[in-house]
Amino acid sequence: MVDLSQYLPILIFLVIALGLSTLFVFLPMATARLTGVYNPTAEKLSEYECGFPAFEDARSQFDVKFYLVAISFIIFDLEAAFLFPWAVSLGVTGWVGWTGMMIFLGILAIGLAYEWKIGALDWD
């Protein structure tokens, strides 16, 4: 088993963060409920959008351009994820590892050049 005590600070941090954020959400609600007058009606509870009832569902279809951006993000995100182990193990892998990564980056650089030239990075 791994020595997990090194993760204790982050565990404590997470517990405190969770506790505080819960407090911030529920404490005002509880205070309002306990001190104010609680008397809901249908009108009070209806949604309010600049004085009008909401026109449509908040979920609407949007342009496929966003998708292209998200895909590019994921691809380069994955590329970056490969860089972490490469960077820390360069002492073991030596020139083989270095050359390998350069070829990998080269392949994706070609992809980036293609993407750029074809106009996929332009918004309009």
Binding site: I107, I110, G111, A113, Y114, K117, I118
Partner: peptide
């Protein structure tokens, strides 16, 4: 394929 990819853009 890599060369053709670039050419297809240019």
């Amino acid at each position: 394929a890599l060369v053709l990819l670039l050419l297809s853009a240019w």
